[in-house]
Design a protein around this nucleic acid. Structure first.
Lengths: 339, 339
DNA sequence: GACGTTCACTGAACCGGATAAGCTGAGCCA
DNA sequence: TGGCTCAGCTTATCCGGTTCAGTGAACGTC
């Protein structure tokens, strides 16, 4: 129960606390022989420095915060966050930083958490997810001067560092691919409209549809849940001029859409082509497997973590573009069947 | 950037640090008038106590640790963990405890993380997931005397506190239900065999099949991934005496199994009934929606968190039984079609 | 009015590290 | 031999809280 302190190591080694501190941190001030002796004793008695004491002295927490404010019912099923977290984690634990996680109800609660974390010196910086249009969290973070990396953009991130991927390019490529297959009536089931990346994709969709003269293109709004994705699909497929291809803003809605198509007696990809955003193992589970826009999400998280550690280290916060999502064609897309 | 300390509050109020500490913590030793004045000043200058200083002084971290050692490819896709975490979180943040998360590669790395966390006083206790048969983590935790709650069991948790659900009863009920529908050839696609709950379910499956004289009952092993679940299903459905019903140890494998059945031209539930363990929104996404064994996982997490806080508080670690998973029949189960 | 008691508060020690500043003895050189 | 340098340590201080042992004033008591 009683965990050894630096004083215990010092006593065993017959030196002062200061000498032990120098030895363990690779600082000059002790001879190599003494350093080795102290290191051996520290290992032997199972000493590891108290993070609290170190934090108090060094004025650094050795931890990074991540607050997630999506409701639990979405959090649970989207593989995205777990993949992101595992990537963040890999990077952090390599530099022995801890990850502190908090699930919050809404953006205001999230701001309150940032304020508390920073006040309590519990974290050295935070990763910000789910960037919104006109996001209150950005000015709040700027005011707190809390080191942060925003996962999202481009744009709307104020002076904060950010990491983004070119969703507009990915969406444009996807529409062009569907048009090349022969589709003209393309629909999009979008996620929550106040999220910045939804907005970016919506704008890109409108632009490419206008350029390619897809007059029947339509965007319907959803909330990332399977229920809503399914409902949106049902509406789309019930319309007189039903689309021959649908692009979904996440994997969960795409799978729900696939089920609705099957339920309505439509074959995929014969009657309907489906493209999912966020490629995940889920997309390969279903039959037919879903064509999807994917990228290496753990790598994305690791990248964000590295960037945050740089910002914490005092480097200026710049805006970094990550890999553009790649389209992986699978069985859910094909030329439309002629009717 | 410069965050106020207790000394700043004391100076503003014209009292000593001690008085401020008493006032903020609701301790006796200050008059009500002074307390209110101090509270007002603390709020005004935006003071919140440094968690490091408090941890150092009170010898408590104000944080709870959760190490997950499943590989990222499973972590990401199973909704279970996110649901569990959101429940844990809800309970912890209500008592202003933080949750520290770490993803590790294997059980030995997990033990190393516990050792480090405890040595560094980074956490006051841990939640242990994925109990294994002959789990090395249990004696390691006992030896460390690190407060812990094991999510799993019954059995194999040593002297540690544990929270478990009666998977044996749930599995028995499921088999009885399938038999009542008229099924006689029932298969089970199990998860990783060295997990304790897999073992419990396997034993219960063998027992109930023997009792009901289901001579064709068979268990095949998988690893919780969709790929493996699909492969296992393909093997099962290719055999001469193919089963008319399959029970899957998680939702992801069940969905993969459904796809394989469709791919092989079998209808669900006509040719094959499917039951999934771990009811989640995923089960309702697919067509037909999956009959599933579910329970309130966030509540399970919250329960575990409460129990851990009790153990940290010095209460003896007892073994608590949580809600038994309930069978929710949906479209994927029906009487077998007569051949 | 001497004494005990309570109240409201102060001062200082302490938690366990990091680190600046001070001390000591060995080695070197003139 | 004295003076100097410098490696190799020790000592003391600090970080920001909590807490315990005082302390002085007010009050009641006989």
């Amino acid at each position: 129960m009683k965990r050894p302190t630096i004083a215990d190591v010092a006593r065993h080694a017959g030196v002062s606390k200061g000498a032990v501190s120098y030895a363990l941190n690779g600082q000059p001030g002790v001879s190599e022989a003494t350093r080795q002796r102290i290191l051996a004793i520290a290992t032997e008695i199972g000493f590891s420095p108290s993070s609290a004491a170190r934090a108090l002295s060094a004025a650094t927490a050795g931890a990074v915060g991540l607050a997630l404010c999506r409701p639990a019912r979405i959090l649970g099923i989207e593989p995205f966050f777990m993949a992101l977290i595992s990537g963040v984690e890999a990077e952090l634990s390599a530099r022995s930083y801890a990850l502190t996680l908090q699930v919050v109800a809404d953006p205001d609660a999230e701001i309150a958490v940032y304020r508390r974390w920073w006040g309590e010196r519990r974290v050295d910086g935070v990763l910000v997810c789910d960037l919104r249009t006109d996001d209150h969290r950005i000015p709040a973070l700027e005011q707190l001067q809390l080191p942060a990396v925003v996962i999202g953009g481009p744009g709307g991130t104020g002076a904060l560092a950010s990491l983004w991927s070119d969703d507009a390019a990915a969406l444009t490529e996807t529409v062009e691919y569907l048009v090349a297959l022969g589709h003209r009536r393309i629909a999009r089931v979008a996620g929550l409209p106040d999220l910045r990346h939804t907005e970016i994709r919506t704008d890109a969709f409108a632009a490419v549809c206008q350029r390619l003269d897809l007059v029947d293109a339509v965007t319907v709004w959803s909330d990332y849940t399977g229920e809503e994705g399914g409902r949106a699909t049902r509406r789309l497929l019930s319309s007189a001029q039903r689309p021959t291809a649908v692009i979904y803003d996440n994997d969960v809605m795409a799978i729900a859409g696939l089920s609705v198509a099957q339920e309505m007696g439509l074959t995929v990809p014969g009657d309907l082509s489906i493209v999912a955003w966020d490629d995940s193992p889920l997309c390969r589970l279903v039959h037919p497997p879903l064509t999807a826009l994917g990228r290496d999400i753990p790598a994305y998280g690791a990248h964000a973590a590295r960037q945050l550690l740089a910002v914490i280290g005092g480097e200026p916060g710049n805006r970094v573009q990550d890999e553009t999502p790649q389209l992986t064609p699978r069985g859910s897309t094909a030329p439309p069947r002629v009717r």
